[in-house]
Design a protein around this nucleic acid. Sequence first.
DNA 1: ATCCCTCGAGTTCA
DNA 2: CTCGAGGGAT
Length: 648
Amino acid sequence: MDKFARMKELVSTLNEWARLYYEEDAPTASDAEYDRLYDELRKLEEEEGYSLKNSPTHRIGGAPQKKFEQSAHLKKLYSLDKCQTKEEFSEWCARIVKAIGYLPELTCEYKFDGLTLNLLYEDGALKKATTRGDGSVGEVVTAQVRTIKKLPRYISYKGRIEIQGEGILRLSQLEKYNSTALEPLKNARNGAAGAIRNLDPAVTAERGLSFMAYNVGFSERDFETQADMRAFLKEEGFEVEGGYRLAHSEEDAMKFADETDEVRESLDYLIDGVVYKVNDVSLRDDIGVTEKFPKWAVAYKFKADEMTTELKDVVWQVSRSAKLNPIAVLEPVDIGGVTVSRATLNNYGDILKKKVRVGDRVFVRRSNDVIPEIMGVAVESETSRPVAKPEVCPVCGSPVRESGAFLYCTGEHCAPQIISALDHFASKNALDIDGFSEKTAELLFNERHVRTGADLLNLKPEDMFGLDGFGEKKIGNLIASIQKSKHTTLDRLLFAIGIDGIGKKTARDLYKRFGTLEALMSASREELLSIDGIGDILADNILGYFSSEENKKYVRELMESGIVLEDLPKAEGALSGMRIVLTGSLPTYKRGEATAIIEQNGGEVAASVSKTVDLVLAGEEAGSKLDKAKKLGIKIIDEDEFRRMLGL
DNA sequence: ATCCCTCGAGTTCA
DNA sequence: CTCGAGGGAT
């Protein structure tokens, strides 16, 4: 291929990748792949002394900006608990009644389908706009949000205040945009999300987004009710559409949902349900929140697009943890513009529960509009047959063991198990080996007899010569990533080796408690059980793992391959180095919240009282732990004192 | 025995 | 996101 043709090819590939990355939010290539082609293009341009006019190298600053800046919200953006049926909504109401004794006034609002945004105003001016992100930290998209025409730049309220709402694309605007756009948008939600998440605000401006405000997050003034809050937002010039209403009973509330479902088609924007909130803010504290969402609000979601199709077969996949996972093979069916031909059936128990048989017509939907899921049988077929329960592993032929809802392959050398274990070993939260994928794992397993993480870390360039698709550059990159990954932390290593039931969080807890691999390997049962979150089964898994000679040898090999364990920066704070036990129920904090606060301040939460414990944080109805603490003379505090210690 | 909550593991298509 | 299982409190 001549150089000009290659340049043209590179430019179009890179531009397409960038478009998918920024506009569709669907990266198709890794950063490393992008960089490689980008470098090749720049080199060619230098050699030839010219460049194509749409070359990505023209973008300001050479390399295109790849990321948005991150920023923490002043107040967490909660997601909402959800319900799908009237019965589930009834249960939610019942929980409210249980908490405060009666069903209070509820506000009813539309649930907009777009992208949640958080706007910070200071001295009446829009200072910063961020996406929801994980609820605590989002991406800064101020320039993009400023392109929303109807959004007030200035408000009369002068304190610091966060306004939460949804960035949406009105359907009339979508139509208008598509009538002139070179590339029409597939739907309003992706259009809105893609517009905000485009690094070029000019692109955002062209789409013509709207902002629907629905909540005040952080603020220096109080609101007594949700209704007050909405009135405030309206007065300040925000759009607060959404069929708003107050409901005084369960029936009232459900009526709103039914009516909304009926008018849904005629609205100028997408909604995927309605939201109910307890109107009186002072009641909300009594009802409380969980880790994920407030208990005083709920989203009632409309039924997602559901289709029926024929279940043609069930095939079994073997996972890292030796589980046999059933995958439904479906007669391809179009759901919301995507053709679905496979769907998970979760586990053997799920097949029995849903009573699906091969040959039946089944209901399929895309859960969360993404992952296909089988809901149940639509039409039983005369000729359908039950799903055969495998007696032996379909891959290696070893006997199958049944436990709970799951089937397990008992084979030790079953290829998919080993391959996914390698993939897991290299994954993001484990050793994070860049440029390593399940495909690479499969190739190295089949062609180069790579079996363990240690084999992987000990790979030499010559081991990869002649592998399909492995050129000099790719080999060099992979070797460099492997070397880089050897500088890691104990929690990552523990997660990587994949002890049953030990994930990211538990691995971190183990690291915090023991500090070194040696200390963990010689830990006693009691020491393990003293960690909050570790009980009999996990303790057994850990002890079992490190009592096996084979595993000990494996860990030794890993360390000998050149792993250097670094310390995570220790959280400093008022509780630095303290071990604290929680007991009873605290007046305002939930267990998870208290744990988070303790850890943020450098403390550690222990499961049971012993003489290594420094402090017991006791709430109401504390039982035996409190007695034991008194006996051992350990300091006992209540929530108020705990707060004083931290200056909260 | 029986709640409730948190964690781990697994998933589709383009 | 979803489920099931494990852990902890009662």
